[in-house]
Design a protein around this nucleic acid. Sequence first.
DNA 1: TATGCCGGGGA
DNA 2: TCCCCGGCATA
Length: 427
Amino acid sequence: KLNLKFHHNMKSNSGDRWSHGGSLSPEAADEQRVADGKRTGRALDPDTRSVSLLEQKRKVVSSSIDVPHARRSEEEVDMDKVTAAMVLTSLSTSPLVRSPPVKVSEGLSGSWKDNNSAGPFTPSSYSSSGGYWSWSAPSDQSNPSTPSPPLPADSFKPFRVPSLGGVGPGPAGPEDPSLDEQDGSSLLFDEPIPRKRKNSMKVMFKCLWKNCGKVLSTAAGIQRHIRTNHLGRNCDSECSDGEEDFYYTEIKLNTDSVADGLSSLSPVSPSVLSPPPPPPPPSLSQLADSHTPPQSNDTKEPQGGGTTPLSRSAPSALYLIHTDHAYQVRSAGSNFTPTNSSSFSISWQSPPVTFTGNTVSPSKSQGFGEQRSQTIAVLSSPPRATTALSRKVRGEGKKCRKVYGMENRDMWCTACRWKKACQRFTD
DNA sequence: TATGCCGGGGA
DNA sequence: TCCCCGGCATA
């Protein structure tokens, strides 16, 4: 509990997400890196290294916290699952709403970081591409104009809060998260999509900005379009923080059916993009709210207090979206290979992981249960055997007691009377 | 809950 | 040794 509080305070105190993530994340990152050894590529920041006793102490605390997190996560996971499932279902219906998902995903990613302050990636993103997240934090001057943040902000806060509380996605311990989550995400999104592309599919990029359905054939083009027209950035790629990635979606067109034209795009794209279901009404409402008002986003973010209302339901939704988004990002990353995006994809994946982890957790629990039962069985079996050997197995036939009944106890054999093995009706 | 028995204890 | 009973395991 103390630990949790500690994290929370840190986050709340520092208006900036990143600062939060940064402070906490480095520690976690170190741990995970060591443990996993997966993402060793990035060197730790000098700052991180410099961390001294205090940091170490934190680590200890954080590590201890992990356990509680996991537990909470499991509980909530179930809820999240359900919510997520609902969201997905609903999303599958309407394609247009995608943009929200993307944003949401961002929010999620952010939350994820916070949650998994210990997460391996936080540091990387933190150190390498702090700018990325800037959008999420309007306070940063870098992205003053970015409207999209609003959505993220709303969703973001709620999401974060839960996670911070310990309920969050961070459920899985350091180990599980990365592995399980990745697996889940990969299963759902990674494999199917990439393969499809290769076939007769043509990839187009559609601007998700409101009232802008512009479709371009290149990611660079769409990014530029978004950057210039929607984000109001004049500078080229330099200015890009990867934010553009979130405002366009990748559309796969079947070359055969391309004739249909864009009109077909919207319908097709959803189906094609296995991961991203369309935006449905109810669940979306939340998302939409967060999305639509970019400005509100900015306003909200600074305060950061927004723990209140959205809280759980939103987070769950976010999860789904997040996943979807992750997919998009990844694909984009693979295609475009933006430096930032790469980092993103990683961080994003982690969130899916969380989700998956949740999903998995149940199975795990079951597995444990099974193990338990097995173990018990094993243990119990020996006693039985012992009993059988040492103790006379109960005879099948009726004994004096049953034959004569309690009323005629006098008629019982002495053994029966003495509560010994019946001598009269021996088996 | 009802039985069948074992292990013990008292007379 | 005879009788009884507590308690356990099983049906």
